[in-house]
């Protein structure tokens, strides 16, 4: 289609055509051809974007059962919800547990 577009542009600017109607027709064909090329290229790019895998960041929320201590840390292998992590370092009496594991997810494009 790009070749078609270039060919018609060449005809228009080649100085051969004298009839203005033919010129308009050729310009229209060239514009249509270039639009088709452009749309095809953007569609191809979208196709590539769909397939690209984006790894996500997973976080673990650690909370104390007694005080207000809360910590958000990176997920580590072996973490699970309600896993006991020992005594709280802030109040020294409460038990620390993983209260939730989540991902913020990738931002919307």
């Amino acid at each position: 289609m790009a070749v078609v577009g270039l060919y018609f542009i060449g005809l228009v600017f080649g100085g051969v055509i004298t009839d203005p109607n033919i010129t308009i027709l050729y310009v229209t064909i060239a514009v249509l051809a270039f639009t088709f090329v452009l749309l095809t290229m953007t569609r191809m790019r979208r196709g590539i974007r769909i397939g690209a895998y984006t790894p996500v960041k997973v976080l673990s929320v650690v909370k104390c059962g007694q005080c207000s201590f809360k910590q958000i840390k990176n997920f580590a292998i072996g973490d699970f919800v309600f896993k006991a992590l020992g005594k709280c370092t802030q109040c020294m009496t409460g038990d620390l547990t993983i209260n939730g594991i989540y991902t913020e997810g990738s931002p919307k494009k």
Binding site: I50, G51, V56, I77, I101
Partner: peptide, 19 residues
């Protein structure tokens, strides 16, 4: 492809034991 991508994400979650 979107579904397959989700399965790949699931595989990663299963490998690490994430909810």
């Amino acid at each position: 492809i979107q579904e397959a991508e989700a399965y790949l994400g699931a595989a990663k979650a299963f490998a690490e034991g994430q909810p």
